[in-house]
Design a protein around this nucleic acid. Structure first.
Lengths: 342, 342
DNA sequence: GAATGCATCCAAAACGCTTTGGACGACAGC
DNA sequence: GCTGTCGTCCAAAGCGTTTTGGATGCATTC
């Protein structure tokens, strides 16, 4: 059942039926009701394709995921997409998901913009002076960045967690417990979020006049084995750290495994504070959570980012939307006073 | 730059340009070359929307994700989608990703089929006698199911891991090591994969005339805390199990945590065999992996499932494509001989 | 009573592609 | 020389919407 058929059924023109359905004013309430009832009865759904062609609007948001053959897949991604997807569904947008080889990412944005297949895109995992940001601005493709690119002079829309402050707070929390040898097991520091976390870590140490020991900082893709190996190395040396800050729950699990394996009690001999994205598979909502953590739900971030993007698409012209979220510090069982030197 | 403009530039009709670009035979090689060079020069990209409207084909695959407000998000999903996405990109298909409330899933498939926005869909997480399978067949929407629905009389396309056999093998492996008290920490047994794993587990026990102890079987969403709590309960009782089979690495991590916390050495006092989906965040590729596991890459499954679906879309009419993969048993450090009763 | 305004509707053009159904020569077969 | 066939090209008709630019009738105004 298409528009023309429906119109014929009603003895109306396609024009009027279209207007009635889309809420235009120049149609009487009586016929509008008649039209919508018929549409419901015949289960008429306008062809999205035809509507796109006619309007030039796609009602589609692009998620471009650069991925090399052997790259790791970010497990945070599904939570973010799930959050965003709820908003898209509620506001009747589609999402076009594309995997693209990293070296082709820019070119892909170009063709995406030209083709008009999307009304906007979400930018993930920004790095320092991220070239995608000026590119998207140049292409006039509305976007919102999940995270902020550092060393980026121009203004753009973003939603970010205050990673610097949250890691500063987490570090101070450990310092207050008496720890002086702190390790940071970070994500890849080309990523802006990891860069900012390191800054917060160093800032807190600096304010207490503590030296930053480069041997106690590691950064890599955030996997469990990475956390394990990093912690094992560090705990195996003299003058080993008594506390760890980790950039994800997955890393923290690896760290805890290494600690336990070497006979350290987590929360007693060794403390761990992690950033917790509230991923579904690691919900840590016991009365007393396993890990002390700075928490911020990535699913909620996905929801909000999608809302912000759709708002600017539907109501363009304002200043770029920006939101900075503070993470919540939740005390769990993985932290305790620094063990007495001995 | 659209088709008409490009045609004018070349002093050709849009018809000829279209045919040249799409590889139709009735155009001379000379003009074909001339056309493709001009297209490259002007960076002409045909409007996908217009092409869809004209052909009725969408070159789009749908991924529908039912998700309640508080449901957990399956972390396997991003790996699967990444694998499938590589294939879509290579073969120039789009993927339409939609989050939908569980109670609206069927209705959504209906509108999706009517709207012609997708050429096919991928079905995830089948359950017993999954109603979506006859629905999609009725809608004549090509699909492939990742996993097999059990108690499903009709024939349909699927790609699955032989979960029953892999869990049978894993169980036999533990039995051969002398364990007699085995626990199964499973995913939700409404899911077909979990159901089959249980069958394999019970089959192996039955063949050795061992009783299946219902107290040693748990099933729930596969999270780390679930594994932890299940194992802690079981280990805390008299006559506790000496070996665990778990349905995911995430559960296994929780089990290991519980074991270590109670002073059991993993691989010595307590053995663990897990199913390993080869998720990026848990790559366990050391010389001797942490967990003994039955392995099957979900990313590869995504790739293959996408290929199978696209093949049947482009070449319809054959029998439903079906592939059953055997998982690989990899010996790690989490298993050892059953401790002597003492 | 003519002019104006308003509410309601419609015909037809666009959107950018694909595809149907020829047109037009060139060339071969008889 | 006439008919067929083949290779190459094109005009025009879709595909299913939205949107432009009226048309029509009726009430209101002076």
């Amino acid at each position: 059942m298409n528009l023309k058929e429906l119109a014929r059924h009603l003895n109306l023109s396609p024009t009027t039926v279209s207007r009635a359905l889309n809420g235009y004013p120049e149609v009487s309430e009586a016929t509008r009701r008649r039209v919508s009832e018929a549409a419901a009865k015949f289960q008429y759904r306008p062809s999205a394709t035809a509507a796109r062609l006619a309007t030039g609007k796609s009602r589609t948001i692009g998620h471009l995921t650069p991925l090399g053959a052997h790259d790791m897949i970010n497990p945070h991604f599904s939570d973010f997409l799930a959050g965003a997807g709820e908003v898209y569904a509620a506001r009747d947008y589609d999402v076009l998901f594309t995997v693209v080889r990293p070296e082709e990412e820019a070119e892909h944005y170009r063709t995406l913009a030209r083709s008009g297949r999307v009304d906007g895109v979400i930018l993930h995992a920004p790095v320092a002076a991220d070239p995608r940001i000026p590119l998207l601005a140049e292409l006039r493709l509305p976007f919102i960045c999940h995270g902020r690119s550092h060393d980026m002079p121009v203004d753009y829309a973003w939603l970010d967690v205050n990673n610097r402050r949250s890691f500063k707070r987490a570090t101070e929390f450990l310092l207050d417990l008496g720890h002086t040898r702190l390790a940071l097991i970070n994500g890849l520091e080309t990523m802006s979020f990891a860069h900012r976390r390191r800054l917060g870590f160093e800032e807190a140490l600096g304010e207490r006049s503590l030296r930053v020991d480069p041997d106690l900082i590691r950064s890599a893709d955030m996997t469990e084995p990475f956390g394990y190996h990093a912690a094992r190395d560090m705990l195996g040396r003299p003058d080993s750290p008594t506390a760890f800050l980790t950039s994800s729950s997955i890393i923290a699990i690896g760290v805890a495994r290494a600690a336990q394996e070497q006979g350290y009690g987590v929360g007693r001999d060794v403390s761990i504070v992690t950033h917790d994205d509230c991923l579904s598979a690691f919900v840590d909502r016991d009365d007393v959570p396993v890990f002390t953590a700075v928490r911020s739900s990535i699913r909620e971030a996905g929801k909000r980012a999608a809302e912000m993007l759709l708002d600017t698409i539907e109501e363009p012209g304002g200043p770029p939307a920006q939101e900075l979220w503070e993470a919540e510090l939740v005390i769990g069982r993985s932290t305790g006073p620094a063990p007495r030197a001995g």
